[in-house]
Amino acid sequence: MAASFIELKDLSKSYLSRAGNQEVLTDLNLSINEGEFVALMGPSGSGKSTLMNIIGCLDLPTSGIYLLNGTDVGSLDYDEQAILRNNTIGFIFQGFNLLPRATLEKNVMLPLVYARVGKEERHDRARVLLEKVGLGNRLLAMPNEISGGEQQRVAIARALANNPKLILADEPTGNLDSGSGRVIMDIFTELNKEGITIFLVTHELNIASYAKRQIKLLDGKIVQDEATKGANQ
């Protein structure tokens, strides 16, 4: 049998701090298949952000192996990891992380610039993506001119620019009112139906209930891993 899309084997992560060596993640084993919709839950300090950063190729484990789509991420250098992030992963952050001085269109085009996509195609793709998230008429607006929910939709459009297989969302609704949050989660559900793997980090139960699989993390260990109905039923 082929390896899963995401495969963690005996993965540990520790930080050196003044208090000594702190282990944040301990001997994690986890497999996620392509097309899953996973919610990672747990209290603050349980290690969920660290795990997400490792899965997102933004950070490396101290020990253990992380395979993404069959590639050993630990063996890649800076640029190879960057290329992997660019064409396989789309990030959604709690604070949106749009470039404040660039128009919505420019923000969405940025991953395409780094993917060396031509100028005309960049514009076309950005327009299509912004239309898809309902902002097709705000191409030249600046991020500070639109609401938080709209900013998060721009961030989703940006995450989708290079047709990623995996969307990593870190508390995507944390800064939004419940109405905007529902819109965002509906988009994720829709994307998951299109076959994109969604990995969601949250501590809100009703947000996690959109996922089809819930993983609970406590003190760096997986304490619960169960399938759910999903789609906030």
């Binding site: 992030r85 660019n86 780094y114 940006r158």
Partner: peptide, 16 residues
């Protein structure tokens, strides 16, 4: 610094 982090997460190469 934060902008650089955003660019890196999106896939900017070191030389970019």
């Amino acid at each position: 610094t934060r902008e650089i982090g955003i660019r890196a997460s999106i896939g900017a190469l070191r030389r970019d």
